[in-house]
Design a protein around this nucleic acid. Sequence first.
DNA 1: TAGCTCATGTAACTAGTTACATGATTTG
DNA 2: CAAATCATGTAACTAGTTACATGAGCTA
Lengths: 181, 181
Amino acid sequence: MALEHAILVSLSERAGSGYELTRRFEKSIGLFWSATHQQIYRVLKRMEEAGWVAVDVVAQSGRPDKKVYTVSDRGRAELVRWLAEPDPSAGPVELAVKIRGATFGDPAKVAEEIVRHRAKHAERLDVYRQIEKRDFPAPAALTGRHLHQYLVLRGGIRVEEGQVEWFDEVLTALHHPKDAR
Amino acid sequence: MALEHAILVSLSERAGSGYELTRRFEKSIGLFWSATHQQIYRVLKRMEEAGWVAVDVVAQSGRPDKKVYTVSDRGRAELVRWLAEPDPSAGPVELAVKIRGATFGDPAKVAEEIVRHRAKHAERLDVYRQIEKRDFPAPAALTGRHLHQYLVLRGGIRVEEGQVEWFDEVLTALHHPKDAR
DNA sequence: TAGCTCATGTAACTAGTTACATGATTTG
DNA sequence: CAAATCATGTAACTAGTTACATGAGCTA
């Protein structure tokens, strides 16, 4: 579960209300991550109880009060911890949140996590390619059920290829920082 | 929710027990889809109550009885219906299940669904590329927070590119069937 | 003899979705 | 005048995960 951490990253970039966060999750972040306002409100409440965020109630003329959330010291510490922690079950979306939040922790630790996941995906890609070679040596001749199974395998291969290439792009960029020259 | 339908496809390929299905979901299907045995047992029970599958209890020596599930007429009809039904909220995994199951329904209907999703992803890719051009005209010079945001956008672009290419591969294969010549 | 495979299940929990509710202001 | 935006919330539900339980046979 990382909605908490996605919210921590977003609030670290800029403080905001639950409503504003909902909008953000519909756009930039939410292009690959979706969360309804109910979900966000509930998680924000939990985060407040845990002391990860502080609330500032802003009265407004004509419209309801706004609860502006800011990341607290405890929240910042939690984000740093999470960014450095290896998570073998993390998917691309979680990793994207870690990359986007790298500025608020240790980017080198994030890079290490990417290296681990790159290895896992490269291995999986290898398995897929072996299956492709073994079970579908002549794809042009396939029909029906076998063709459909082959097409799904092709999807898996393409996904893993894209993943590995992206990880490489990320690692190249993180390992050769322009500000360290 | 499409675990039901993934199970229908898998059982259409070959009858099996909940335990066997769990194994299958760990391998071929489950390379991109995961389901625990508890989840599968519960869904199988629901499917049985709905009359989509029939159970055949097989006694075994030394080990527990096996409940072998077979797709019923009602289940086959449901699969055909689902395969032909447009689902705008379907993700790549659901579409992969539809492609893999196309043999058990109307492959042309599945192709139509792929066309719709290809359009959606091509549009999204276009949006991402515009953001890339507008917000990151000189990526080589990026550092820190902006670099990290750029890398996430690159991930989104790669994912959508891979998706669109895969859909094209699928459509080419489905539109030019070798057995229709 | 310890751990894995086969085989099924219950119970409790967490995450996420859908529906409902309120109410002022701004825009077409 | 209708619809969208701003702004927050409750309640009920669905999906999925984790932990626990049982028990025989097979393998290192």
